[in-house]
Design a protein around this nucleic acid. Structure first.
Length: 518
DNA sequence: TCTAATT
């Protein structure tokens, strides 16, 4: 039997119910996606609320089946837009809707999309033909085509399995869990080298089945070579994952500042993606934890920078299958990628694709966020986790795009130095709008600080205090908003937020007169 | 020992 590689999974398209034990691995029959009605394909649907509101498309051409499946498409190169993706997917049927996911503030391409075909059947065909079957140019993992999360009930039915023996394969895990229900997916986590990390995900078709597997298996046995008994629990939710990642990555802020890690490139989405990849590698190398107190010698940092470049597959961006390239219609490159004779390893960087999203006014979106003062995020009363995620994204993207140090990027200068860097003088907001922040990472400057708080509203100033003698941050600073609600939202979300080993202290700045009571 | 991304 072929071994499973890190990205390789197996699919069994025609054995929905018969789970041959030897045929484990990832298994996601489209039929497993629940849909909301029992009408056979083609039967006119009754609206749930009872009112007849069948929308007829003007030319009748773009109606979707009532039982259409919304697909999630993953592992899309960030330079491909809807128009570039369309040809690939159209071969399976008429597309009802195709949306590339973008960051809600910066417009940054998230590397994934949603796709709904008019016909349910087309979705099934596309999934069968494409999921895990091809790797798009520049990606290291194969394309993902599967029902979106929104298509399945949000019920917890995915398990995390820890303390496995590193020799155990998908098949072994499958056999272990099979008695407790129908397994839709079974994946052993593997490092870049393909070695098992000793843990796995197992997705059952129902919450009840998953629960019964926990009851039966958790702590039930100790695998040979494992340090403690088998762990079986519900997998982290996305939010839990996001928070964990934030805590790990922000702690290494200096490393992820491209001014250090990538001393010779312009700052593109591509570079950003590389760094995330690097993050994964480093996290693996260092057992998943790097604290700010772990200082990296300059030489090592330099090495990491080199790794970002040299660590790429030697024939740059991973195997590109020629025929696929054609299928995608990329023989003529997307408009924003100039044709170039530059070696392909640097092409995405030097040819002017900076990855900086532009607003209609022609300014980089990051700047627009600041100067336009987007609707304060607090207005939507987000959950703390949502807010943290936004804050984190902001920090990450800011540093990915605008290096703290002035550099001349190869090939092209940034469109314009971001105005936000200019505003340096300390502007205080009205009473109740000014925050004192302590325990900042050493690497944070005014701009990182501002980025971190932008999600909560319009930041009118941000200032990190520097030691005059050493020019080092004193790890505290001030942020001023234009309204007290934003300030409160920021306190709510960010006070106590863990960065590396430290927790931020975020509180209202004491009014001047209060601090000097004479 | 918690995937890579989910409007």
């Amino acid at each position: 039997m072929a071994r499973f590689t890190q990205t390789e999974t197996r699919r069994h398209q025609h054995q929905q119910q018969q789970h041959a034990p030897g045929a484990a691995a990832t298994h996601q029959p489209p039929q497993a996606t629940p849909h909301q009605h029992q009408y056979p394909h083609g039967t006119p649907a009754k609206p749930m609320n009872g009112s007849e509101s069948i929308s007829i498309h003007p030319d009748g051409s773009n109606m979707k089946d009532q039982d259409a499946i919304k697909l999630f498409i993953g592992q899309i190169p960030r330079n491909l837009e809807e128009k570039d993706l369309k040809p690939l997917f159209e071969q399976f049927g008429k597309i009802h809707e195709l949306t590339v996911l973008k960051d809600r503030y910066t417009g940054m391409h998230k590397g994934c999309a949603f796709l709904t075909y008019c016909a349910r059947e087309s979705a099934i065909k596309a999934q069968n033909a494409l999921h895990e079957q091809k790797t798009l140019p520049g990606m290291t993992r194969p394309i993902q085509v599967k029902p979106a999360d929104s298509e399945s009930r949000g019920e917890d039915r995915k398990l995390f399995v820890g303390m496995l023996n590193k020799q155990q394969t998908e098949e072994d895990v499958y056999r272990l869990f099979e008695p407790y229900g129908v397994i839709e997916e079974c994946t052993v986590l593997r490092g870049p080298d393909g070695n098992s990390k000793g843990c796995a995900f197992v997705k059952f078709s129902t919450h009840t089945e998953a629960q019964s597997a926990i009851s039966a298996l958790h702590g039930s046995q100790t695998m040979p070579g494992a340090s403690s008994s088998l762990v079986v629990k519900f997998a982290d939710t996305d939010k839990e994952r996001t928070i964990r990642r934030m805590q790990q990555m922000v702690g290494q802020f200096g490393i992820f500042n491209p001014a250090i890690a990538l001393p010779f490139s312009t700052y593109s989405t591509y570079a950003h993606a590389l760094m995330q990849q690097q993050a994964a590698i480093m996290a693996a190398t260092h057992g998943g934890y790097l604290t700010p107190s772990v200082a990296f010698p300059a030489a090592q940092i330099h090495q990491m920078g080199a790794l970002n470049i040299n660590g790429l597959p030697p024939t740059p961006m991973t195997p590109v299958s020629g025929e696929f390239h054609q299928t995608l219609g990329l023989s003529s490159p997307p408009a924003n990628i100039a044709t170039s004779a530059v070696p392909s390893i640097v092409t995405p960087i030097v040819n002017g694709f900076t990855g900086i999203p532009h607003q209609p006014n022609g300014h980089p979106a990051v700047e627009a966020v600041y100067t336009n003062g987007l609707p304060p995020y607090s207005a939507q009363s987000p959950t703390a986790a949502d807010t943290l995620q936004q804050a984190f994204t902001g920090v990450q993207q800011y540093t990915a795009i605008y290096p703290a140090t002035t550099l001349t990027p190869i090939g092209q200068t940034l469109p314009q130095p971001p105005q936000v860097i200019q505003q340096q003088q300390q502007r205080e907001g009205p009473e109740g709008c000014n925050l004192f922040i302590y325990h900042l990472p050493q690497e944070f400057g005014d701009n990182e600080l501002m980025q971190m708080f932008l999600p909560f509203g319009t930041v009118i100033s941000s200032k990190v205090f520097m030691d005059r003698a050493t020019n080092q941050s004193k790890c505290f600073g001030f942020v001023s908003f234009d309204n007290p609600a934003s300030a409160q939202a920021a306190i709510q979300a960010m006070n106590g937020f863990q960065i590396g080993m430290k927790r931020l202290k975020v509180q209202l700045k004491r009014p001047k007169d209060a601090s000097r009571p004479y």
